[in-house]
Structure formats: C-alpha cells, structure tokens
C-alpha cells in the first residue's frame, strides 16, 4: 500500500528537481532533448559484442549527475522497476549464443554473455539519460521542446496529460487500497475475488477525477493546446553545451578510445 504513496511522492520529487536553479536546469530544453536523443542513438548503435566501445559512454551520465547534484543512487532507486525488465530481456542471450570470444583464466566468455552485458548497459544508459532529461528539465519544458521540433500538438498534449494523469491514477489507487486495507487488517494483499470490483471502482474514480480536471482546464480557456512558460531563447552557452556533447559523442562513437588506452596497460 505504501508503495503507491511512494510512487506519487517520487513523481513529485522528480518535478521538484526540474524546478531547481542549477546550471544544467538552465540549459535550453531543446538542447538537452537533442543531446539526450543523440546520446541514446549513439549508445544503442554499437555492435552487440562491442563492450569496450560502450564503456566510455558512461562519462555523460556521470558528468550530468555531478552537474545536476543528483545522486546516482537515487536514480538507480527510481529505475529499479524498469531495470529488471532490461536484464530479463538480455538473460536469454547466453542460452542461445555460444560463440566463444575470449578466455579469462579457464572460463570461456561467449558472445551470449557479452551481448547480454552490452544490452543491459545500453538499456541502463538510455534509462539514465532519460531520467536525467526529465529530472533537469521537467515534462512541461520537454513538451515545449517537442513543439519547437514541430511535433503535432495533439501528440505533445497527449504526452503531457498522460504524465499528469499518472499521479491522478496513483492517488486514486492509493485511496482505494488504503480504504480496503483498513477494513481487512489481517490480509497481506487484496483477495483475488474482489480484484474485479476494486479495479472497476478505480477506473470509475480515475475517470471522474480526470473528467473534473479536464473541466477545470476547459473553464480556463483550454482549447486543446498547452501554452507553455515563456519562450526561452538559446544563449551562447547553450550552443557550447550542445556542440561539446555532440562532438564528444561522435568522437566516442567513431574512435576506439579503449583500444588506445590498452597501449598504456
């Protein structure tokens, strides 16, 4: 039951992080969005056996965590729901791919193991980069950036409202499950027999709340399009930030840095 309260709280904490006044929060949202997309594209484009090529890409999240003053631990904590899924997908690679690649002592490292590790790394990088984007920008500014990219406003509004309604759904679920647990103190979970009526109740309540919120928006002139906070103009430092990261990503993608480093060891 407490998990739902925590989930709502975590979303609010994320929103709060985005409202802070750090240097990275001040970077233009479009710049941060482009950097994130290019980073993820470069990271996932590596060959499934190219573990060493992927390693240097860790530099981006590490620097951003430092600049934004966000602890890696808190990020991992928030991603712990999705990370097992990423691991699960890669789990079958060692079963199907037995191509021997190299040996560590007497242990043969197969292609399946390496591809599993690269898959997990790619997933983790993508999740961390997305988390950092949301935590340093906020969903409203991300949507503003998407609008600048001329994404259809109906899609942008859908993204924004979906994000907003997650908290509505979680709050309602929390209220329903709390009411249940208070009257069923000896049970650890919800009895399977009443899952149906509970979910139905949750659906109706969420729809009602969502309807009220939508009414509130309509009454204040909403006509299907969000008008975001003041338009932000790109400054010189935004360009420096953008081109520096793009340069680093392209260099890391094209040059085998770890190969050069091997010379020193």
């Amino acid at each position: 039951m407490g998990k739902l309260t925590n989930a709502v709280y975590e979303i609010h904490v994320l929103d709060e992080m985005a409202e802070r006044d750090t240097g990275i929060n001040q970077v233009h949202p479009l710049v941060k969005l482009i950097v994130t997309v290019v980073y993820i594209t470069c990271a996932v484009s590596f060959d499934k056996y190219n573990l060493l090529g992927l390693l240097p890409f860790l530099i981006y999240p590490l620097i951003l965590f430092e600049l934004a003053g966000i602890s890696i631990k808190s990020c991992i904590k928030k991603l712990k729901v999705v990370l097992p899924l990423v691991c699960f997908i890669g789990l079958f690679n060692p079963v199907f791919d037995h191509t021997p690649l190299f040996k560590i002592g007497n242990i043969i490292i197969t292609g399946g193991i390496i591809s599993m590790v690269t898959l997990i790394m790619k997933g983790t990088y993508a999740l961390m980069a997305s988390f950092l984007l949301v935590a340093t920008t906020g969903i409203e500014k991300i949507c503003y950036a998407l609008k600048l990219l001329h994404l259809p406003s109906i899609i942008v509004t859908q993204i924004l409202l979906t994000y907003r309604y997650i908290t509505v759904l979680l709050s309602e679920a929390n209220a329903v499950f709390q009411a249940y647990s208070l009257r069923a103190p000896r049970e650890n979970g919800v009895k399977y027999k009443i899952w149906g009526s509970l979910i139905g109740q949750l659906l109706f309540r969420s729809m009602d709340r969502a309807g009220n919120l939508y009414d509130s928006m309509l009454l204040r002139g909403f006509q299907g399009e969000f008008y975001y906070a003041r338009s932000q103009k790109g400054s010189g430092s935004d360009y420096v930030y953008l081109f520096s990261w793009l340069g680093i990503f392209i260099a890391l993608r094209l040059i085998n840095i770890t190969g050069y480093l091997k010379v020193f060891f």
Binding site: E19, G138, R209, N212, M217, R220
Partner: peptide
Amino acid sequence: IGYLFQDSDNQLFNQTVYNDVAFGPRNY
C-alpha cells in the same frame, strides 16, 4: 465566469502555483 471546484485537487493540476494561476491567462 470563474468557477471554483469543491475539491481544490480538481482545480489545480500544474506543478507550481505560478503555472496554475498563469494557465488561464496564457490560454487567452
């Protein structure tokens, strides 16, 4: 007309007070 909902959680849906109060004027 300005309409005040019974439950304030139905009225306020933005992150901060400023953004919520600015929502109406921006739409106009």
